[in-house]
Write a protein that binds this DNA or RNA. Structure first.
Lengths: 212, 212, 212, 212
DNA sequence: CATGAATGAGGTTTCATTCAT
DNA sequence: TATGAATGAAACCTCATTCAT
């Protein structure tokens, strides 16, 4: 499904030359800036180009249309999150289950919170731009990393079933979104981080028992 | 805070005459129809009016702008969900914790799934229209109902803290959204329903222990 | 020219019954209020009716269209001004020229200033509504009164020619408009009143000499 | 005060390329054409663009909204008038008072009459568009030029006070407007030109005496 | 007579995208 | 290759006016 759902969003050309890479970076950053300062509704290609210091024409050299631009920015962000999760999974191998979950959940939350404003801003257009499909892709990537990690847990007989891992991810991502969109105070974010650990730990433990 | 966040979305006038009430209903229904058949991007006030069999002018007699129309539809939906949750909380009083959670989670999921298409469609514009604030409000309402119910649980010493209840709701709502947006198959929805029960039960149990 | 220019602006029916007269008065007053509080661009028939405490339908019972309403309000105002000028002309008969002019100019300015806000507000739509023709009519009326008065001046051989009288009126009305639209301070209005007397006196005196 | 009153009417960008300059000129001219042929009420941005041979979008590249377009046209016209007055003031230096006044008044009237249709048409919307503030600015500019000229009059002891100069301008502009809006015949315009000279001469002479 | 819901043409404005320079 | 002027479809929204109740 992602394959079709995501078609047509890829950027137009890969920046091989340095100048091009700089331009693409500037456009990407400008998109986020405009999004933060003006909101989705005032996010226009012209404004992005202006802020990036290039002309609209140039923007369209790198992105075939507006959607592809937004898609790229969102994909970038989710990529970073996925990488964080994968890294955490890699480092937590062979440790007890509780430690594993803690490490992964905290990595996820921290990755999201590193730039709270951006995370929140991206929710605004995710739906328009293939966001769900991208998130699903992120979910799959994370699930695989989680599964690989859980295989190595030092204190469980059998790992939880695939669906449970996906559920855990869904709960983690969903609850985070909920809290962020509710206008997260720093205290709430701390609370989220702690409670999400407990939530995921207890769920996965229950899911392992159930799987026996 | 919702108070300010939601300002300006209220409908324009309350229909006093019968004819007017019919009109408002038709517009509301038409909005959902257009949303389902054409998607958010093709949802224009003109099209909605057309489908409702009234003129645009009439639409604007009842809704000051497009946002307020979408807001009303979303608010309606969330209201129904909140009512389901509250009803379930009311009926599950004085039962053991596990039963309570099961009842509430299933009520929530079932309310969302009653019209899956609508639920999914609403996510598309929720962010534009004060959705987060509305969802937060729904969260508060549900939390209160949950707390009142949990007070009466027959098998726990002390109820979980407020934040835990909110977390549970966040996880429930967030995971549901994730699954729905991923393009839920009937099998997945069944899985969601079952697993969400386990997830919430184990989390709340853990949260109660932690609270001791 | 006024005859054709003004056709179609007359109100629909003359209020013979008391209730009707009250309604018409309320609508008229409401028009001015809306004009003052919301500006020409927000002056709609619905809003006027609302403020007047009647329904739009009722408004249209008395005025065939929006223009006729505005026309009536403007005509009313100009009528009051014309009456003031005529009264002043009547009272100043058989006095020396300078006194005459003084009396008339002051009557004119005072009539305009009695409700400065209204005077200024009316300029806003005068052009759309046959204002110039109405003003011309006012000019003719005033000219006749002035001529009749000047005939009786105790200290001039021959009265000024018709055109000169009209010019005087034009200068008086025009300068007043200029000052009001420039955002008249009380000091400026006092200045206007005094200087306009001098201006008209010296002009008419010159015009009489020239006429000899 | 004009500074604030005029805010928001400035054009959007200055044409740098030749093509752009041509476009702006065409739009400006088209505005006048539409105004003359169709009247204010039928003056729409779409029609103006059409007549100018460009798309609406192009119009909005140069003028942020309809008002700013009308404002620009009005400002242009008033600028020409002001320039005429200034030029006349410059040329009439060191001449006797009567000559000065004659020169200035005739310059003013002639500037206005050069394109009577345009002058009259502009009155139609001046009020909506910051006209009064603009006219006030014109008044100030003219007053300064007049004062500088009057300083050099060969036959008066002391120049008239500031307010008198402003009054003269107000009377001149106001009377002209009155005559034009009354539907000036050529004969009336000749009359206006002559009488306005007398009016201003006699008034200023009186004002100088009064100032002694 | 009064009401006010309904009408719908038409106005203003935006913005993704193109293409001549 | 970069530029940015131009495009124009299409969106939102208003408001004078009518007419069934």
């Amino acid at each position: 499904m992602p394959v079709t759902a995501l078609r047509g969003f890829e950027p137009r050309k890969t920046p091989v030359q340095t100048r091009a890479a700089v331009t693409v970076g500037a456009i990407s950053e400008a998109t986020i800036q405009v999004l933060l300062k003006q909101g989705v509704n005032r996010l226009t290609t012209t404004r992005v180009a202006e802020r990036a210091g290039v002309s609209v024409g140039t923007l369209y050299q790198y992105y075939p249309n507006k959607q592809s631009l937004l898609f790229a920015v969102l994909a970038d962000h989710l990529d970073q999150v996925a990488s964080s999760v994968e890294a955490a999974c890699g480092q937590a191998r062979h440790r007890p289950l509780a430690d594993m979950i803690k490490a992964v959940v905290e990595a996820f939350v921290d990755a999201k919170m590193e730039r709270i404003d951006v995370s929140v801003a991206l929710y605004q257009f995710a739906a328009d731009v293939g966001g769900p499909a991208l998130v699903k892709r992120l979910g799959q990537r994370s699930r695989k990393a989680l599964e690989a990690m859980l295989e190595t847990a030092s204190d469980i007989a059998s790992p939880p079933e695939r669906f449970a891992v996906e559920m855990m991810f869904a709960a983690m991502a969903g609850a985070t979104r909920y809290v962020l969109e509710a206008g997260a105070s720093p205290a709430m974010i701390r609370g989220l981080r702690q409670h999400l650990v407990v939530l995921c730990q207890s769920y996965i433990r229950a899911a392992c028992h159930g799987a026996r």
